[in-house]
């Protein structure tokens, strides 16, 4: 007997007469197979990945710019005061303070219902908000990496006659990147999972569809557990990729 046939047969039986396994099957069928609902999860999954990638791109771009400007400001030669750099540094400092000082959810609500209240593209507004949020954290991670590197490394580069940015690109950033990769990976995982929050402003990702299915079937367990498993698999896949990258970057550590 095929699955649809089994469902037909079992759903005809009064609920009180079903065995535990039979009612379990019925609930799962309604949460996954019925009306091609599994397609909705994958539609949501696709949107989740899309939002993560957009937010990641925005976050990394913002994070790198903010981190480099703020580090350059902190490390400029005493006596050479660049007023433009000071203004930008001050703006970036406010940005990091505000983003880190307010909850993600509140930022989403403000962006979704105040700043972009007329926009219907909730998913993109969500991705944008997540990206701006992530940028603040990424910038602090990168800044930490740049600052934590032995100053002797930059001094060695400068003493050879390399300029500030040449030293940054060839010496400081490659080493800092290796050092911050675990925290960066952690931030990306947080970002991936935070995409679930954009359902509060109507962003159509996995949680949004899971909630819709719960509303239809009056049954919460399966849709939410399926959602959880989907996130878990994505995070595990990402962690695996990260460990491969870390292993490759460790080439110079061999003794």
């Amino acid at each position: 007997m095929d699955i649809a046939g089994l469902y037909e047969t079992l759903s005809a039986i009064p609920a009180a007469d079903l065995s535990g396994w039979q009612s379990f099957f019925l609930k799962f069928y309604r949460a996954w197979f019925m009306n091609g609902r599994w397609l909705q999860y994958f539609e949501g999954l696709l949107a989740t990945i899309e939002v993560t990638v957009i937010a990641l791109a925005i976050g990394v771009a913002l994070g790198v710019i903010v981190a480099i400007v703020r580090t350059a400001y902190a490390q400029q030669r005493p006596g050479t005061h660049n007023p433009l750099l000071a203004v930008i540094d001050f703006i970036f400092k406010i940005y990091v303070t505000v983003i880190r000082g307010t909850p993600m959810m509140v930022q989403l609500l403000i962006m979704g219902f105040v700043v972009f209240s007329s926009s219907r593209n909730f998913t993109f507004v969500g991705a944008l908000t997540l990206g701006i949020n992530s940028g603040a954290y990424v910038s602090e991670i990168i800044r930490g990496g740049l600052m934590s590197l032995d100053p002797g490394q930059a001094e060695a580069g400068r003493s050879l006659g390399l300029g500030y940015f040449q030293t940054m690109m060839s010496i400081v950033i490659p080493q800092a990147f290796k050092a911050i990769l675990p925290s960066l990976g952690n931030e990306f995982i947080v970002l991936l999972k935070d995409t679930s929050l954009i359902s509060v402003i109507g962003g159509k990702e996995v949680v949004y569809f899971a909630q819709a299915i719960v509303a239809r079937t009056y049954e919460a367990m399966f849709p939410y557990i399926i959602t959880a498993i989907m996130y878990l698999i994505m995070v595990m896949a990402f962690s695996y990729l990260q460990s491969i990258l870390e292993r490759r970057l460790r080439a110079s550590d061999r003794r």
């Binding site: 002797g152 060695a156 400068r158 006659g161 300029g163 080493q175 290796k178």
Partner: peptide
């Protein structure tokens, strides 16, 4: 003088540090 290009003069002055400061990520 802040206007002088220090990178140019540093090329002419080699520096050796107490802690070597070799670049660990390069051969």
């Amino acid at each position: 003088d802040p206007k002088s290009d220090i990178n140019k003069y540093r090329q002419k002055m080699g520096m050796v540090f107490q802690h070597f400061n070799l670049f660990p990520h390069m051969t």
